[in-house]
Design a protein around this nucleic acid. Structure first.
Lengths: 245, 245
DNA sequence: ACGGGCGATATGTCTATACATAAACTTAAG
DNA sequence: CTTAAGTTTATGTATAGACATATCGCCCGT
């Protein structure tokens, strides 16, 4: 029953982290199930013999991590896990291949600058006419095709892109390092390779491919839309959740 | 140059949120690029005329969100975005279909209880012999096949699963609501439908499918391994990042 | 030139206190 | 019995001050 029973086992160094982890463990082991009211701040404070601000910091972090819900006057409650959230880290492809210890290769297939046509505007989600760059390129790892990239960049939103040299720099890397963004949306789906994709990725027609479509905005202003096609049997997206530091 | 210039524009109500948002905006608009040293706590504190704890709370939250990096003696710095992180929310399938406003259907295809064989142990990642339940079932939306599920549950880790009635409750929903977990890993890939999958999902042989494989642990103890196969052209996983509350 | 020691300094944690605020509960009026 | 007003209470925010800790840079001795 006592909160402080096992606090000594934790050797994290700081008090508020100890408190946070003690509570976190009780939640994750199911000792305090969803809906359970965890002790009031003043109770925890007495158990650990510390000030309320310290307890508050621990509970605030748990609330920020969506592990508990705090309600004025009522107390703090263990939240029901709504979904299997997962943090999917999609690195820049150049960095991704580098991290795998393989040689990165890049090849610009085509690059066109034009006033956005109806299809471009639809894809980017802009209504007013604007200039765009349309890029198609290929990434490879150890000289094997890794992914095909098809990208549209809004030149009005990213004027610097006109000066970038996409023959050398992959547009994804360039954008990631030069253009700040506030929102991104990813959609993941599966297709089978048609002739064009099969040839570009050096796989058979009809082979499965993983498709990632990403839209990026800055303050509601569309910046770029990209479609990445990966060989589906060789590539996997991996997401891990809750290492709980 | 002044930090407080535009703080009046923010009408969030509380000071530390105002400070956090002021800094966040400067980072996201690129006014303070990656690597830039943001003002010291005592400088911000003087600009807003508040105490250091208030500034500290704002900066701590920014650090927790990985927007800045804090180094003792050196100061706080804008972090370079390492990857296009995205929070992928994978809801329980029953809830997902319900949220789409479609009628959920569930059908248990087979359910076997056995001592884990080599393949089962390999898949779950356990070394010692244990009992498992192997389940195959189908989810549908408005009577159309939605996904095929193939699951293994470690009965030693989840003894309650022996009492669950998987003829009625989908195992994913049951587990999500009854078994607390601490870690999950998802792998997403693409395959083409073989005859078995094509028949179960009512699609053509050779059609693309999205595959999600999920492993779930509690305190390093494997709980369950599941493989979900979706029709790849109809189903998309969508992840959005940084609504910035 | 090189490395060790040391002080200055910014962040990290913690305290005791104060007042604000929202929501649940109580009580009184219709 | 229903509604409105007031009270209580737990959390939310903010403060001023204190000490801990990591580390950057300087000075010094070899």
């Amino acid at each position: 029953m006592s909160l402080a029973d096992d606090s000594a086992k934790q050797a994290t160094g700081t008090l508020y982290k100890t408190i946070r982890q003690d509570i976190e463990r009780r939640i994750l082991t199911g000792e305090w199930p969803p809906g359970h009211r965890i002790p009031f701040e003043h109770e925890i404070m007495e158990h650990y013999g510390c000030s309320r601000m310290t307890v508050n910091k621990a509970l605030s972090e748990l609330a920020q991590a969506d592990l508990i819900e705090r309600r004025r006057r009522a107390g703090s409650f263990v939240r029901r896990p709504q979904f299997l959230s997962a943090v999917l880290k999609i690195p820049d492809i150049r960095a991704e291949i580098g991290a795998l210890g393989r040689a990165y290769g890049y090849e610009l297939i085509s690059s066109t600058r034009r006033t956005a046509n109806a299809a471009d505007r639809e894809r980017l989600g802009v209504k007013t006419p604007c200039k765009v760059i349309a890029i198609r390129c290929r990434h490879s790892a150890d000289n094997l095709p890794f992914a095909i990239e098809d990208r549209l960049i809004d030149l009005d939103a990213v004027p610097d892109a006109a000066k970038a040299n996409f023959k050398v720099d992959p547009p994804g890397s360039w954008l990631l390092h030069h253009v700040p963004w506030t929102e991104a949306e990813h959609a993941i789906s599966a297709i089978v390779a048609d002739e064009v994709i099969a040839e570009a990725l050096d796989i058979a027609v009809g082979a499965p491919c993983l498709v990632i479509e990403r839209h990026t905005w800055r303050q509601n202003q569309p910046l770029t839309a990209v479609r990445l096609v990966y060989p589906g049997e060789q590539h996997r997206l991996v997401a891990r959740f809750r290492g709980s530091e």
